[in-house]
């Protein structure tokens, strides 16, 4: 029954996507929009398939992925470390708390020009942009998750002679893992988005740059391709992340 329900749900979910594609095709076939403004879906997906097999395109994708993972990796390391430290030490909590409250609602993409000025036009400024945007959800989720860990879990470890610092790493952090991973997933999607935007604003390579280059040359088909690529990339990363999450959290009670 549940299986059948799932299948039905998946089919229902495909309807709007199919409708959009159909409408797109219809507008194109009816000649309502010139191909220069709206190319046919067939043209776009043929081009996408072609590009995904082209080494030059994949090199651009690789540049994007490198920046994405460098920035996200840094954000993960710093966000988790600071979040745990803020729970473990009253002093760290007192300093990071208000700073996070001030910086979290600031539109951090606006810092990108500052990174260009201080770190240059290359990878470093884009990695920094990804980092500052991804670090906050991870830090906040880690802080909140570790703060609400059942104290008796930590007591059980402390009674076994484990030092407070060790307890923080071996008990409090793993116990907060569901929350940490929620933050990390938000951070990952943000990383996807920011790296693309940074490449659109200034870059000489990467998927975002390809979109801007196509826009400058009025190659409409080539504008769609990087956008679909980043969406596919996001879906893939999300699926991979969910698989990893299921594995890491296999001992935890299921959540809805």
């Amino acid at each position: 029954m549940i299986r059948a329900g799932r299948l039905a749900d998946t089919l229902i979910g495909l309807v709007p996507i199919a409708l959009i594609l159909l409408a797109w095709q219809a507008v194109h076939s009816a000649g309502l929009a010139p191909p220069a403004l709206l190319p046919s879906p067939a043209a776009v997906f043929t081009r996408l398939a072609q590009q995904l097999g082209s080494p030059a395109y994949l090199e651009h994708a690789a540049a994007t992925l490198y920046r994405l993972f460098a920035g996200f990796g840094l954000a993960l390391a710093v966000g988790v470390a600071l979040g745990v430290a803020a729970t473990g030490s009253r002093a760290v909590g007192a300093v990071t708390g208000p700073i996070v409250r001030v910086l979290a609602p600031v539109p951090k993409i606006a810092l990108y020009p500052a990174f260009i000025l201080t770190l240059g036009f290359d990878d470093a400024s884009k990695i920094a942009a990804v980092f500052v945007d991804a670090v906050f959800p991870i830090l906040i989720a880690t802080r909140q998750g570790t703060a609400v860990v059942e104290p008796k879990l930590a007591w059980s470890a402390r009674a076994a002679g484990v030092s407070p610092a060790r307890c923080l790493v071996t008990v409090v952090l793993p116990a907060a893992l569901p929350s940490v991973l929620t933050g990390a997933r938000i951070g990952l999607v943000i990383s996807c988005i920011v790296v693309f935007l940074a490449e659109m604003i200034t870059s000489t390579d990467g998927l975002g740059h390809l979109l801007v280059r196509a826009a400058r040359n009025f190659q409409t088909v080539d504008m769609f391709v990087p956008l679909i690529t980043i969406s596919l990339l996001g879906l893939t990363l999300n699926a991979a992340f969910n698989a990893l999450r299921a594995r890491l959290l296999r001992g935890f009670p299921e959540e809805s």
Binding site: K152, L153, S156, A159, P174, A175, G251, P253
Partner: peptide, 20 residues
């Protein structure tokens, strides 16, 4: 503070869910 000479057992079990 806590020490290994005094072992607690809680009503809530307080087992580590990520460990077997």
């Amino acid at each position: 503070g806590p020490g290994p000479d005094r072992g607690p057992v809680f009503q809530e079990f307080a087992l580590f869910p990520w460990k077997t």
